[in-house]
Amino acid sequence: MLYGTPALEAADKAVLAEIEDMRRDLKYRLAETHRWDGQLRRQLRARAIQGSNSIEGYRASVEDIESIMAGEEPLETSVPVSREIAGYQQALTYIQVLSRAPVFRFDVGLLHGLNFMVIGHHRDKSPGAIRPGGIYIRDSDSGAVVYEGPDADLVPGLLDELVGWLNEGDRDCPSYVRAAMAHFNLVKIHPWRDGNGRMSRALQTLVLGREQIMLPEFSSIEEWLGQQRTTIEYYDVLGLVGGRQWGPHGDTLPWVRFCLKAHHMQAQRVSQRLAEAGEIWMLLEEQVDADGLNNRSVSALYEVFVNRRLRRSRYQADEGLSQGQAARDLRDLAAKGWLQPYGETKGRFYAPGPRMARIKADFAERVTPLRDPYR
């Protein structure tokens, strides 16, 4: 028996309708190709990876995560954390593929395979295999047990039931609700020795991807969940709804409501970023033209605007340049005061110069606050 899908109330249906309106608007705006689309998607993917891993205590900058995604060595992140990031990035990349696959069904083997991608570098934790015994979640500060998963001998049957539900259950429910319940049931079953939280969040993204809600990087709420205050609320509602032991009963509406709010807030944020991207790009394009620089260098300036730094290899790959061309462009941008170089050889990167810092400061003062849809 799994935790049941709750009936929605009028307030929840109103929030769902607003989420759908924002989704349609985003889909319409994304239908038109822009030069900044690729970088925006990459940044959203990196922020989703950052959010989900930070919940588990694995913290890395967006810039380092983008380097790991590109197969490069990060500048600051430790090797152990880099492995966690790379594993999760591999799983999310596969989820993007599965979201578009013409033939697809959920099965237990898929879930085990995704878990192996996430924690395969921890061979001592039986990646991709059901845990052999009980599992206890402890408070990181006090050490007290806050949740006890179901007995190990129940896990195979529960996973079979979950997969059956993923394929056929509650098909008349809104996709956002089904995705939330998939997340909740998997994290409460806690079938593996490690990676359960990240797997549950990834499964929520996959359910939405299969429903063609949006490209995974635009529908994921992992970035939102990774914020410190939201993470605390996330654990609180999991504890409130699920209790201290496995027991599929009670009202799951508070959990679904929490997820709907997260989708709404993240959709607002993505919509703002999409609008800002166009404004920033055009502004930088005007500045580059005025300085007599090559128009392609707007790509480098945009990357530095949205992130803290840029590496030559990233710009070179984005624009399909030779090493010499990329180096010359960045040197010209530094000479004009747009970029400030730091470090040498492989460790060299470019941060905002004084002119870029002024533009970033202007935009920072124009942030529009997000609206809580339940208030």
Results as ranks from 00 to 15, higher is better:
139 D>F: 11
131 R>W: 10
176 Y>E: 15
141 D>E: 14
135 I>Y: 08
172 D>K: 13
184 F>P: 02
137 I>G: 01
163 V>H: 10
140 S>Y: 12
170 D>L: 06
169 G>Q: 04
183 H>C: 02
133 G>Y: 12
141 D>Q: 14
139 D>W: 07
172 D>Y: 05
177 V>A: 05
178 R>K: 14
160 D>I: 07
144 A>D: 14
171 R>T: 07
146 V>M: 06
129 A>E: 14
127 P>H: 00
157 G>N: 09
138 R>P: 03
145 V>Y: 11
144 A>P: 01
131 R>F: 09
160 D>H: 13
138 R>K: 15
150 P>G: 03
160 D>W: 06
140 S>F: 10
173 C>L: 11
131 R>I: 11
146 V>L: 11
161 E>C: 05
145 V>M: 07
179 A>M: 06
152 A>C: 09
167 N>M: 10
129 A>N: 05
138 R>F: 01
176 Y>Q: 13
180 A>F: 03
171 R>W: 00
141 D>C: 07
153 D>F: 15
155 V>W: 06
137 I>E: 04
147 Y>V: 01
126 S>A: 11
163 V>P: 12
156 P>K: 09
173 C>M: 13
128 G>C: 08
134 G>A: 13
136 Y>R: 15
155 V>P: 03
172 D>G: 07
145 V>L: 07
141 D>G: 10
184 F>V: 01
133 G>V: 10
167 N>H: 10
139 D>G: 08
139 D>K: 07
162 L>Y: 10
182 A>H: 03
183 H>Q: 08
179 A>K: 04
171 R>C: 00
182 A>D: 07
130 I>C: 02
154 L>R: 15
171 R>N: 03
167 N>W: 12
170 D>M: 05
176 Y>P: 04
183 H>N: 13
151 D>F: 12
170 D>C: 03
166 L>F: 00
173 C>D: 11
139 D>C: 08
148 E>Y: 05
163 V>R: 08
157 G>T: 02
145 V>F: 08
131 R>Y: 10
146 V>K: 12
152 A>R: 14
143 G>A: 07
183 H>I: 01
163 V>S: 11
133 G>M: 11
178 R>L: 12
156 P>L: 09
145 V>R: 13
162 L>W: 09
126 S>M: 11
165 W>V: 02
157 G>Y: 04
144 A>L: 10
159 L>N: 05
133 G>E: 13
167 N>T: 08
142 S>Q: 00
128 G>K: 03
126 S>V: 03
151 D>T: 12
153 D>A: 15
136 Y>C: 01
161 E>M: 09
154 L>A: 14
148 E>I: 13
166 L>H: 01
166 L>M: 08
182 A>G: 14
180 A>L: 02
168 E>N: 12
158 L>A: 03
148 E>N: 06
128 G>A: 05
176 Y>K: 05
144 A>E: 15
143 G>Q: 09
156 P>N: 09
155 V>I: 13
175 S>Y: 04
153 D>S: 15
169 G>M: 07
172 D>T: 12
184 F>E: 00
152 A>P: 05
138 R>S: 06
145 V>C: 06
129 A>M: 10
151 D>A: 15
168 E>G: 01
131 R>E: 03
149 G>A: 14
177 V>D: 05
176 Y>W: 14
165 W>M: 06
